[in-house]
């Protein structure tokens, strides 16, 4: 463990700085105080020695394990795989490694954070080192490092990153996709439908007289309606459809591989379901209706934004024709803003 050259160094008094017995004592004390498991095996994989770390963590008496096969003492080890790995260390005379990221642990050892982490066994980084001694037989030193902490925090980090990614896609109030994610999805679906020459339709829907609802019943009622309508529409969609909150009370649905007639049918179903839904706010029954505009991607459209424009125009037409109805972009006759 320490450089034996120190043995040749003399003090000013002529005494050696370090003697063989001192070196032995130092080495063994360090080995036994290491927070790393040290296990030495011979070329037949029988245990030659170990340090206190392993003795304590396995709760086995040293006398009972010396000379025993590593696979007898640690039956949890994957024998075939580890034999091949250990063979590479002996044959190539080079170290080998096993990280917790690939295998959480090799040895089933308890760890020091059983209360504050959820892992049953100590997460480990293991290193297999070839050892040469004066004896002709080769040995392997296995270092077992406790990385339960690293593993735990990495898991937490991963979970947090996933939550953040999810949050950045979701509208806080309605729990459906937000505008940004919805629009990214549309860009993707547009590219897909162009590449595979598939149909793509879009529904834009807007709550009728939403401002009036807010004015009469308060914004909390408005929020309740937005949430309920979102849930209701979600329940009517297929898994491949992408439903998002486009603006305040405006929503949008991407319908991949759907032609105009199919989108119109769905639009009508949504319109009817909402009109007949019984919403209730503080014991008062609330009646809500929506207007919908439907458009299908045409060969002329060169950008996905044009599909939004088409659906928007149809939506304006539905509003203009008295609300609570579905209009299709195919039948938009006049520019409603003109």
């Amino acid at each position: 463990m320490l450089d034996p050259n120190a043995l040749t160094h003399l003090k000013s008094t002529g005494e050696p700085m370090l003697t063989e017995p001192m070196l032995k004592q130092i080495n063994s004390q360090i080995a036994n105080q290491l927070n790393t498991g040290v296990l030495v095996i011979d070329d037949e994989f029988n245990i030659v020695m170990w340090n206190r770390f392993l003795q304590v963590h396995t709760d086995k008496a040293t006398a009972n394990i010396i000379g025993q096969s590593i696979f007898t003492i640690f039956p949890e080890l994957p024998e075939r795989w580890l034999t091949r790995k250990l063979t590479s260390v002996l044959q190539l005379n080079s170290p080998s490694f096993c990280s917790w990221q690939q295998r959480h642990h090799l040895f089933e050892l308890p760890h020091t954070r059983p209360i504050t982490t959820d892992s049953e066994f100590m997460a480990q980084n293991c290193t297999f080192l070839p050892i040469e001694t004066d004896c002709a037989q080769k040995h392997i030193c296995i270092l077992i490092e406790d990385v339960t902490d690293v593993c735990h925090y990495q898991g937490q980090l991963q979970k947090t990153l996933e939550e953040l990614a999810q949050m950045s896609r979701i509208d806080g109030l309605t729990q459906i996709y937000n505008r940004r994610h919805w629009q990214e999805s549309l860009a993707q679906e547009y590219a897909k439908s162009r590449r595979h020459n598939k149909k793509l339709s879009l529904i834009m829907l807007d709550l009728d007289h939403f401002k009036l609802l807010n004015d009469n019943y308060g914004h909390q009622c408005g929020d309740m309606v937005l949430t309920e309508i979102s849930a209701l529409v979600s329940s009517l969609l297929r898994v491949e459809d992408t439903f998002g909150r486009y603006g305040g009370e405006e929503f949008a649905i991407i319908l991949p591989e759907t032609h105009l007639a199919g989108a119109m049918e769905l639009g009508q179903r949504i319109c009817t379901s909402i009109a007949t839904a019984s919403l209730n706010y503080n014991g008062v029954a609330i009646k809500v209706t929506v207007s919908l505009g439907v458009a299908e991607l045409s060969d002329d459209d060169s950008r996905y934004e044009e599909l939004i424009t088409q659906a928007d125009l149809a939506l304006y037409q539905a509003k203009g024709q008295g609300r609570n109805k579905v209009c299709s972009a195919a039948f938009v006759t006049s520019f409603p803003l003109a």
Binding site: R80, W81, K85, P95
Partner: peptide, 28 residues
């Protein structure tokens, strides 16, 4: 190539294992 059964180790582990063998053998 490494003499393992395919289901004994993941793709990542295979890459890491062969890398370590190639690197350490040459550099040693």
């Amino acid at each position: 190539l490494l003499g393992y059964e395919p289901d004994e180790l993941s793709q990542d582990e295979q890459l890491i294992d062969i890398s370590s063998i190639l690197t350490t053998t040459f550099l040693n």
